[in-house]
Amino acid sequence: MEWNTRSDGLAPPPLLDRARDALFLDFDGTLVPIAERPDAIAPDRLLPPLIARLRAALQGRVVIVSGRRISDLDHYLQSTGLLAAGLHGAEMRGTEPHEMHPDIHRALARARTDVSRNGGGLHIEDKGLAIALHFRARPELQVLAEKLAARAARESEGLLEVQPGNMVVELRPCGADKGSALQAFLKEPLFAGARPIFAGDDLTDEAGFDVARQAGGHGIIVGARQPTGAHYALPDPAAVHRWLIASLEDMTA
C-alpha cells in the first residue's frame, strides 16, 4: 500500500508510534476531499471504523480538530464520544472550552446581519459561534468576502477575528484557534508526555503545526500549499488514509 511518496519537496511522515504519539487530525481537506459546499462532502465509508481503530491503538489519543461544529463531526464519523475541537477550538470535547467574552453573541449577531444583507453571491455558513463566507463557486467574490469579514471584525471591538482559508474567509472568536486547542488537550492527563502529530491542509492548521513542533512533535501538510511550518507532507486525503492504515498495521503487528 503506497503512501510514502514525496509531496512538493517535503518527505512523507514516519509511521505513528503507538507508545508515545498523540494524533490530531483536521477534517475537510485532510480526512475528506474538499467539496464545493461544506454539506456536499462524501466521506469514505471506511473512515469511521478507521478512526475507531486508531483510537484503540493509541489508547484514546486521537483528536479531530476542525472548523466544523462537533455535531457535524459526530454525524460524519458516526461517533458521539470522539475527542474533538470544533469551530477552530471555540467548541471542545475532552478538555476545557475556549473562554468566551459575554458579548460575543451580540457581536456575532451584528456580523450575521451585515454579511446576510451585503454578501449576495457568497455561500454564508452560519456555525453559531463562527461565520464562514465561502467563495469557491464564485472566486471573483473573494474581495467582497474579505471586505465584509474585515468590517465585521473591526466593528466587533476586538471580539471577532478574521481567519483566511481555502476559498473561504471566516469570522471567529478571538483566540479560538487550532494551536490553542492543541495546547488545551496537551494539558490533559491522557496526553501527558505524548508527542503531538498534527495533520492538516489549510492556513488554519499552521497554528497547530507550530504548537506540535514546540511540544516535540511535528506537522504534516496535506497538499502542496507553501510556505508551511509542517515538517512532512502527504499529497491528498487518500494518501492520509493510506498512511493511517499503514501505521495501524505497524502498531498492531
Rank of each mutant, 00 (worst) to 15 (best):
G128L: 04
K147R: 15
H105N: 10
R117G: 11
L144C: 05
R110P: 01
R117T: 11
A130Q: 10
I104S: 09
R110H: 13
P139T: 11
E146S: 11
A111Y: 06
V115D: 00
F135M: 07
N118A: 13
K147L: 04
R112P: 06
A145V: 05
L144V: 04
G121M: 09
R136Q: 07
A109S: 14
A137P: 02
A132G: 13
H123V: 10
A137M: 14
K127Q: 06
L129E: 00
R136G: 10
L122W: 05
N118Q: 14
R151A: 12
R112F: 01
P139G: 09
D103S: 14
E146I: 05
R106G: 13
I131T: 05
E125G: 02
F135S: 10
E125V: 08
G128Y: 01
L129N: 01
L122D: 08
A109R: 12
R110L: 13
R110N: 12
I131E: 05
D114A: 15
K127D: 07
A145P: 03
V143G: 02
D103P: 07
A132R: 04
L129K: 03
L148G: 04
A107T: 06
V143W: 01
R106T: 15
K147Y: 01
L133V: 05
P139D: 11
K127T: 06
R136T: 08
K127S: 11
R117S: 11
A130K: 09
A109I: 05
S116D: 12
L141K: 03
R110F: 09
Q142E: 15
V143S: 11
A130L: 09
G120D: 13
